[in-house]
Structures are given as C-alpha cells and as structure tokens.
Nucleic acid binder design. Structure first.
Lengths: 215, 215
DNA sequence: ATGACTAGACCAACCAGTCGGTCGGCTAGC
DNA sequence: GCTAGCCGACCGACTGGTTGGTCTAGTCAT
C-alpha cells in the first residue's frame, strides 16, 4: 500500500542505485557515467556524492544489494527440499528463473562487473564465490549421504556455476533459448549426470515456492 | 633464425599488438590507454593511428589474431585422434594447457573483452562461439557414432565452454589450482560423465602432440 | 624525389569529484 | 506559538586531469 509505482517516490539513495543498474546494464561498468546515472535518477551530482563517497563504492553497494537479494531468494527456495540433491536442483532452477525475470540483474552481475583491471576483479570475486560455495556445501552433503560418489566437489561446483553463467550469458546476448527457462531441464540433466546422479528424479515439482517475489 | 628475441626487432604493427596484450591484461579494456600502449611498444601516437583506424579496431585485430592462433592450436591437437570423444578430450586438454602457458591470452580473451556495453559484447560473441561450435561438432559426431546417447549437444557444448571458462578464470584471479593443469583430469571426468560417457578411457595419453609450440 | 612510416605537440570532449550554496523541516528558547 | 537557528538532504556550476584522435613536420629506404 505504501509502495509507490515503480520507483517514483522511492528514496534518492535507492533511485540512484536503480538508475545505476540500468545504465551499467546498458553501457558497462566504465561506460556508465555519473552524469547519466543522476539524470536518469532525476537527481544531482551533489546528491550522488552525498550518498556515496565515490562511483566505485556506489557500484559495490549496488552489487552487494543485488547479490544479497539473490542469495536470499535461492536459500528460500532450498529450504523446503528433502535431500541435498533436491536442494541443488532447486537452487539451479531458482537461479535460472530469477535471471530470466530480471535481465538487468543478470547483465550487471554476470557480465558487466568483470574485466576492469585486476583490483576491481578481485574485489567482486567473493560475491561470485558465494554461489559456488552454496552449491559445494550441498554436494558435500550429498556425498556424505551417499547420494553421489566422492569427488572434487569444489571443482565441480565451480564448473556448474560456469556452465550456468555461460548459458545465461548467451541468452543475454542472443536471446536464445527463448524463454531462458526452456534450458532448465537439459541443464539440470547434464549437471546431475556430471556428478553421477540420476537426472530424472530431481527435476519435477520443484521451486513452486520461488515463483512469487519480484522485487 | 630470423625470429628476433622477444619482440625487440619485430614490426611496429606486431609490437603494438604485443604491448596492447600486456596493457589490456593488466588494466582491462577501457583502462588500457593508447598512451601507455605506445610507450610500452616504444612507438608513437602517429604510428599507432597509421596502423589502426581506432583503438577499438586495434583490439578487434588483437582478439582476432589471438583466437585464430588458439583455434589453430586446438585443431592441430585434435587431428591425430581416433574418435570424436578422443578429439573433444584432446581439445579440452589443449585449451587448458595453452591458457596455463599463456596467462595474458587467457586474461584478455576470457576476462577483459567482455562487459563493455552491448555493442562491444556482441562484436566479440562470434569469437567465443567458435569454441563451443567446435565442441558441438564433435559431440554430434559422437552421437552419430553411438559413442554417447542423443542429447542437446548445442546446450551441452555451451555448458562445457562455460565450465572451462570459470575454472580458468578462478585460476587467473586466485592462482588456484596450481598448476592449472592439475584441474584437467577431474574436469575431463565430470565433463565426460555429463554426456553419459565413460570418463576414464579418454583422459590418458592425449595431447602429446600439442606440447610444443609457444608462439 | 617519392611515399611508407614515425614522431610528438596539440585539441576537443569527457570524466569523477568538489564546493559554495539552497531549501524545508525540526527544535529550543522564550 | 512564534521565531532563530541548525542540520540533513540536495543542487549544479566548476575544475583539473585524462582520453582518443588529428595534424604537421619530419626521416629514411628506394
């Protein structure tokens, strides 16, 4: 009820972050000028530097907000699942469908915050690691529960994140598959097979709880 | 014999590209200034803009040169292999060991030429597609030869490229695994399993022919 | 002398960040 | 309940430095 339509009456701080999301998604990290961001946020230079000490810190805040939300969404989706493998399947399904719904988040998180010099890359690395660690924890649990054979779960979870990343990235740049969620079943199948699990049994009936929020 | 040590007496054109490789690997696409590139190449602005119409075209030429060499190396490694699955295994092994040997190439090709605005990203997409297409061709052949069951080879080859990409990227940013080639066996294992093939039989004794050139 | 090639001063555009100042609401003192 | 003054939020002209790209004046091999 108190929520304003879109972001018209939102606090300046959030309006700037929202505008930054769009500009960065469009022009890339270094192509996004403070000028354009504040114009799109109907704000001003002074306001920008009142809320953020620098452009860089602002992007850090933005990426933090995004990845926090994403982690929260994914963890929520995993909660109701009975076994570790059900949980990883649910997390993948949620990740794909969330990115499919929020192109700009995918664009920024997967594409535009890497490749801008060693320091910047290293700063955003921990954020990317969060997801492979989440997956690794479940894979380790699956090994302990004898659901899958022992293996290099650290490497495999990295590979999974990379595989997801690439499929989503192609979708961002080419629009295929359309819709992105068409890729989920074969994706799940190949990933499950790669760890020596039966593919079919984990795909159906998941992520029903995740098809709600939109933010 | 006519090859000069390093790049001391190379043609200006190549010296500029070599210098650009280093600067871009260090500072990223947009952080790499023409000034620093020509300084490192012991050249001048005039020379730079005589050989290239713009900074952007120069990077295009650089990426083209890099990926041509890489494709050539990989295809060479695949030539002597008996079956499609041997060929994909060889290509992955070659890709990993080549990137391990040439950090800067990996840095530029995998990290620093993406995320700089929709247009730039789209321009470099074909280059990235070459590798997944190479893999897909072999996977299709493997399906035809009944080495593996029928499946979405286009998607799987994308996933493979993504998995490789991610593992190499982590190595670039964290240094682990050290050496990178330690990751090859489990990598091959998981990838082979993901398409429903026996992992063990393709990993050994491959890519002996590829351990030569260095460029 | 000619034309491929190199040198580096120069320029306009742009950029992140600064600074003096405005505005509206809140509180203190009376 | 009125006003003086304070403060957090906000504004936008301005600055100093950097950037990609241009231009003219060369050099040097043929």
């Amino acid at each position: 009820m108190s929520k304003a339509p879109a972001n018209a009456a939102a606090a300046t701080y959030d309006r700037i972050l929202d505008a930054a999301t769009e500009v960065i998604a469009q022009r890339g990290y270094s192509g996004a000028g403070v000028q354009e961001i504040i114009e799109r946020a109907s704000s001003s230079k002074g306001s920008f530097y009142f809320h953020f000490p620098s452009k860089e810190k602002m992007v850090e805040a933005l990426v933090g907000r995004m990845s926090d939300k994403l982690v929260e969404t994914v963890q929520e989706a995993m909660e109701g699942q009975p076994t570790p493998l059900h949980r990883v399947a649910a997390s993948i399904d949620t990740l794909v469908s969330t990115f499919a719904r929020q192109r700009k988040v995918a664009q920024v998180l997967l594409l535009n915050i890497i490749g801008h010099g060693r320091e910047t890359d290293r700063r955003f690395l921990p954020m990317r690691e969060r997801f492979s660690q989440m997956i690794q924890e479940e894979l380790d649990a699956a090994v302990s529960a004898d659901q899958i054979p022992p293996q290099d779960t650290a490497l495999v979870s990295q590979m999974w994140v990379g595989a997801l990343h690439e499929v989503i990235l192609r979708w961002l740049l080419t629009g295929q598959p359309s819709p992105l969620t068409n890729a989920t079943p074969p994706l799940q199948g190949a990933l499950m097979r790669s760890i020596g699990a039966e593919p079919a049994s984990f795909t159906p009936a998941i992520a029903a709880s995740a098809r709600r929020r939109l933010s």
